[in-house]
Design a protein around this nucleic acid. Sequence first.
DNA 1: AACTTAACGGACCGATGGTCCGTTTATCAA
DNA 2: TTGATAAACGGACCATCGGTCCGTTAAGTT
Lengths: 187, 187
Amino acid sequence: MRADAVRNREAVLRAAGRLFDAADDPERVSMDDVAAAAGVGKGTLFRRFGDRAGLIRALYEERAERLYASLEPDPGRPAADAVGDLMSALLRFKIENRALARAFENAGGGPYTASGYDRLHSRLTGLMTEARGPDSADFLAHALLAGVRSDLVEHLGDWPEERLRAGMAALVRSVLSGGGSPGRPER
Amino acid sequence: MRADAVRNREAVLRAAGRLFDAADDPERVSMDDVAAAAGVGKGTLFRRFGDRAGLIRALYEERAERLYASLEPDPGRPAADAVGDLMSALLRFKIENRALARAFENAGGGPYTASGYDRLHSRLTGLMTEARGPDSADFLAHALLAGVRSDLVEHLGDWPEERLRAGMAALVRSVLSGGGSPGRPER
DNA sequence: AACTTAACGGACCGATGGTCCGTTTATCAA
DNA sequence: TTGATAAACGGACCATCGGTCCGTTAAGTT
């Protein structure tokens, strides 16, 4: 990649980051805004990132990468605790990046198109399988991740963070404890 | 309300319903499309429903109303079972109306602006409080509802419905069973 | 039948995502 | 250093879409 291309890519990501962080409603950050703030032509934006969703995804995953890195599996840590740690970190991340996260989760294709989602999901599935067996672990991992959807976090925006964390902890505990017998029909 | 107004309102809702049901990507159903399909001018659309989100909400809540009606509280039914029933019905509803539900949940303000959400949420909170006490019941109810977000259902679209239901049942069971001690600090 | 006024409808507007193409410039070989 | 090449640029341009406006129509009333 040419030197100026690299420079511009960086400038765009920085500018977009600033704009989204400052925005109340991420939908109202336009591509023109980003281009202007980055001091770059619109064509450059689209050539580099494909479309709006692409730009947002690139920015989001860049930040998420740092999160994932801080979550390297620790073989010594019990699986149940690891699940709690992960969800807790994820919750903090969503709070700190709520505007960007909202933009990302509403952009084309929803949250499930990001490579990061699959990583999180399979990691969680693994940990839960280890902690409580494989039954429905797959779905439960999805459910856990749904519990930190950015617009839910936003909706609960005026709860004291304490209460949010308590709720999250209760959810994790529930899901890990397994619940009653699985196969019993409803009657 | 004048007779023609009533007629047109109905025509619009029917047409919109058809279009969303047939759509792969609900974002691509335009207001012009709806107006044309309903045989009505665009002005009529906006005068009646305010904006796109308003139309979608009206349509969604109309259908949801039938769902809620079929879920009238039954004092004889144990709370835990009632939670299962509700989530199960909700899951079916989201599957049957996935395009519309996606349109609705992505339209202005997210899913939490609908009056229906609050009703469901407080109903669930009540049932869960009855079944397992009030601790974090509020948050857990939100989490349960997040588990049937339309784009998650869509993402899991190729799972056999059986598996989905099993997962949902496991989630409900977990959340109702309560999990371990709440206050214990992490390490 | 005459009148009032709610309702209509489609031309019109502004904003936005995305494209196109003539121009600039990084890179590299001679 | 210079000249050739193609990658990268940028902003005018386009299409679409949500939403508004206002002259026209027709429902309801007396």
